[in-house]
Structures are given as C-alpha cells and as structure tokens.
Design a protein around this nucleic acid. Structure first.
Length: 116
RNA sequence: GCGGAAGGUCGGAUGACCGCUGCGCCGGGGCGACCCGGCGGGGAGGAAAGUCCGGACUCCGGAAAUCAACGGUGCCGGGUAACGCCCGGGCGAGGUAACUCGACGGAAAGCGCCACAGAAAUGAAACCACCGCGCCCCGGCGCGGCAAGGGUGAAACGGUGGGGUAAGAGCCCACCGCGCCGGUGGCAACACCGGCGGCAUGGCAAGCCCCACCGGGAGCAAUGCCAAAUAGGGACCGCGCGUCGCAAGACAGGGCCGUUUUCGCCCGAGCAGGUCCGGGUUGGCAGCUAGAGCCCCCCUGGCAACAGCGGGGCAAGAGGAAUGGUCAUCGAACCGGCAGCAGUGCCGGGGAACAGAAUCCGGCUUACAGACCUUCCGCGCAC
RNA sequence: CGGAGCGUGGCGCAGCCUGGUAGCGCACCUGUUUUGGGUACAGGGGGUCGGAGGUUCGAAUCCUCUCGCUCCGA
C-alpha cells in the first residue's frame, strides 16, 4: 500500500463528490472526485440514507461497503481522489460479495477511464 | 392425556483467514503534542427502541420557609435516592377454578352540560290512562284526586311481596338497597352487628372545580478549558454620585427566583456587572464511564416488595459514530414425501424474531420467530 | 442525542380549548347563457377526521398507546 486511506467526514466534501462523476451498479452507487492536490491521500466516504432501512440495515450496508473499499480502493484508488460509496435498499446487504467486488472494479475502470 | 393460569431463563453455535476500536506492555521515531509496528486480554440488548415518568450530574442568579399561579398524582398501608414504579391489603368486575383486570378521593361546596325523542332531563311537573262528582246528543266534556300502569329515551325521583284504598301512592309492614347514629375488629382503606329515618340524594369531575400530597427552570448539542480566527466594535439595561476615614474598610442606599419574610452574597464614584446585535470558529481536550451498579450464594428481620452483614463473580466506551467482513460445518421454525391408530421416527428442501449503546442509573410502555424450566387449576382415565 | 409542533374530501385550511350539525376556498360533475370555448349563474357528488384502545348514552373533539411528517438546538 503506497498511499494512505482517509475517511471522508465533512458534509461539504460529500456534496462536492455528489456533483462530480458517478456510476451505478445493482449493489451500490460510486461517486468520484479528483481533488486539486493530486498527490494527496485517497479519501473514502460512505452514505446510507433512511431509504436503506432501519439502523440495523444501514449499519450492515455500511460495513459491507467498508469491507469492499478496504479490499479494492486501498490498492486501486487514485491518489488525490475522493470516493463516496452509497448503499441501496435490500441489495447492498444481500448481493454475493464476489459479485460486488467485480462491480467495484468495473466501476473504477469506467470512472478512471473517462476522467483520464 | 387434554385444556388452561402464574413466574422465570435463553434468544443461533463452532472454526479459519482478513479488519476496526479503546486499555495495558514492549520496540522505534519526534524537542514535544503525538505517530508507526508488535503482543496480550476486552468490545451491543432484553428490549440498547419509544422518550412516557423518576433521579444523579451541570448551568441559570445562593438557600430555607410561605402564599399565589401553573402542571401532575389520586382506595389504604408499606418499600425505595425518587417515582405515575413495586409489594401487601380492601372494594368492584370477570372466570367452574388456578387466577386476572380496574385513572378506584369528592356529584347534600358551587358553576356548567344532558342533542334527538318524550308530558317532563332535576325546582318539580302531568300527555295518555285510572278513580270520584257533575252535565249531556252515551260517547265525550268540565272540575277534582292520583302518580301504580302505557309510550319516549342511554338515563324517568328506590326494588320485590303483602296490606290498604273510590283509584292509588313509603300511606303502612317485611326483606333488600340507601343515608345517619352507636358498638366491635383492623394502623388504615374497610368489614360485621344493632338501632333509627321512611327515601330526601339521576348521570358526567379522562368539563370547570373542591380536598389531600408533590414539583423553581433548562438540559451532556448541559457545562468547563485550550487552540485558531475576527473584533478590540455597536446598541441597551442596572445602579449611582451620600456619610466617617490619610488609606484599607465600615455605614446609609441599591441589586440578587412571581409575592412576602429570614439568612447569605454582590455593588457601594465606574462596576468594566448583565443582555442583545454584528463579526469569527464549526477544531481539540475534559465531562465519559466504578455507580443508589448488576448477578449468584449463606445468614438475620419481614407475609412480600425490600433492608442489613459476609463471600464470590461481572461490568463496551464510539464520536460521519468502532463492537465487524468473507467462507466452511452444524443447525430451530416452516414446507414436501414415506412409515405408524397415535405420540413420533427417517429422508429431502430451507437457513433464524424484534432489533444497534451515544452522559449514566431506577421504572413503565411498545416490538418479538421460537426453545426450555418451575409451581398451580379444571376435566377425563387408571389405582 | 435532546426539545417543540402537525396529521380532517384530490390540494390548501377551519372546526377540537367549551363532546351531539363535519364547514370554507380551489379543483371535479351536470344544467343554463355562447356558433363553440372561457367567464358568470344555478344545482350536485365526494371525507375510515393517521391507526388502536379507553372514558361517556354519544368522540374529529377528552385520556392513553402507537405510526408518519415538519421544525429548532453545539
């Protein structure tokens, strides 16, 4: 791991990422924003609205998204980028983990390819 | 065996790999705050929920008593830090029973309301009917008596039976109900017994209210500190220019919870006291987890809730918010098939309810697939 | 996390405190007026009062529980 991974905490950062590039898969929505400091750390945020369910369902969805990000974005994340993973109703908690890993790789290829 | 009642416990399990977090230790780096790595042992619930009550704690302007307003509680006694909670008792209701349920003070302190229907909805009164007398066209009318019967309504001024009467009526009597007085038992709610009154007193207090008791307000996003940044601002309010003294200070005087009183504190010639606006910061640390703590056992007191002594055990502290992710095995409910009179057994599928700590405790309420334990009641059968 | 408030026809609101009739505006339907439409006038339909339980003879209204939504506080 050559770049540190930080957690996104500010509401303003989430709003900026929401206006940037995004792509959707059955299990989640991925947003990506290239910051001005291109050598900075990779930053990741997680969002689950009340639409996902009650507190138990929201926490479980966020934990699965965090596990996905730890496996993929730590190595394939681009420095100086903010990523936001958004949970979806039912699917985020129930889809097979391998399928979501593939989807995340595909989503990263799509966003990196178009923004390069 | 079937059906039921009460109380309690648990609420998926095991393993592997990869992670998060705070605590302790070790090593390294840094002047330091701290950062990195390794190891060890912790890491969601019975409701963590709803936020419906009661506290602890903190601030508001310090405390006690009192009155008023407002809010709450409401049979009696006890338990508790406290409670609207718990335990025991009383009364009422339901059930064959075990047992369960009850916002369960006062309607002769006062005000208000009781739609429609009905003669009349609480001062009493009288539509039909009943009875007596009078009159006539023999069916009614007039006067008087009466309130038992009819009809209306959720509710009609005690109920049943007998006597009585022109017809009736607590008009009289017995029993029941109600009220009052006395006695006995009980701390009390209340119960029982005796006597008296002839009955006056409809319902609603989850309408106002009366009585008794309780409560100052706001809340951990409280509050305190540090750093950074902006400003060194503006407006208003409070009291004021007293006496003695060289001064410190003291005394007048003033201020401090809605009222009053007592004490206490503050000001007392600038105090730089308070409030608001404007501007800045949306960082860090503390509060922050050991306290009326929970559980188990023995003993003592108590019917019990509970209290006391002793012993043992357990106790997460996050902060865009950790307590997990993936895989494998085992697996309850449920579904299907086969066997059996049945309890059930075997095979296959299936893959776990409600739900996530946010300052902390004591309760209540609500949600919940199922599994297990103890005690008790009724019925049936056998002895 | 803590604290306030609101749920009534399709939409926006009264009525609730002080219990017996659910009302107003826009919208909708029908008719008249017009060559037709709009406008105007007349008439009409449509509401489990968020849900459950209780108090009462009777609940949109009073009480308790519950569901959903909105706002405020460092």
């Amino acid at each position: 791991m050559f770049s540190r991974v930080e957690t996104l905490k500010k509401r303003a950062d989430f709003l900026r990422a929401a206006r940037a590039r995004h792509t959707a898969t059955p299990g989640f929505v991925l947003q990506m924003r290239q910051r001005t400091d291109t050598a900075g750390p990779v930053r990741i945020g997680f969002t689950c609205s009340k639409k996902v369910g009650n507190a138990v369902a929201r926490n479980r969805a966020k934990r699965r998204l965090r596990a996905l990000a730890r496996e993929v974005l730590a190595e394939h994340g681009r420095p100086g980028c903010d990523y936001v993973l958004i949970g979806r109703l039912e699917k985020t908690a129930t889809l097979p983990f391998d399928r979501m890993l593939e989807d995340l790789h595909a989503a990263l290829r799509k966003l990196h390819g178009t923004s390069a």
